[in-house]
């Protein structure tokens, strides 16, 4: 009688362990599948972003080259003539060279004491008193 009970106990334990093992293996499988799916999804997203980045790079290169073509002096001259803008380069009279005393004198003469004060402010201008 004792022997039968022990055998039943052993069999029950074996069944439980088997079920547990099946559950564990199944769970591991499911987790693996879930992880792989996650990795695949993340990889796809990365790939999509890579493609998008490449597209942006391509667009940027296109825009940059079009801007460069638009800044070509010959093209700009054509545009000036086309739109009859009558633009000319500045002559020497219109050019004020920074860092020369004439600049400060001229500014002070034109705009009064406020600019003069700024130009001669202690430590603030090139010509501090």
């Amino acid at each position: 009688m004792m022997k039968n009970i022990k055998q039943t106990e052993y069999a029950n334990r074996l069944i439980i362990l088997t079920f547990a093992l099946i559950f564990l293996v199944g769970a591991t499988g499911l987790v693996t599948v879930w992880l792989r799916h996650g990795i695949a999804t993340a990889a796809s997203e990365t790939r999509a972003m890579e493609v998008r980045l490449n597209e942006v790079d391509r667009a940027l290169a296109r825009v940059n080259s079009e801007i460069a073509a638009g800044l070509n002096p010959s093209f700009l001259h054509q545009q000036i003539e086309r739109f009859d803008l009558d633009l000319r380069r500045p002559d020497d009279e219109q050019i004020v060279r920074l860092g020369t005393p004439e600049v400060f004198d001229g500014l002070a003469g034109e705009s009064g004491s406020a600019i003069e004060g700024m130009a001669y402010r202690e430590g603030g201008g090139e010509r501090s008193r």
């Binding site: 391509r58 290169a61 296109r62 940059n64 080259s65 801007i67 460069a68 800044l71």
Partner: peptide, 9 residues
Amino acid sequence: GNLLATDRT
């Protein structure tokens, strides 16, 4: 810094 040569698709 004016672009003189570049690659484009």
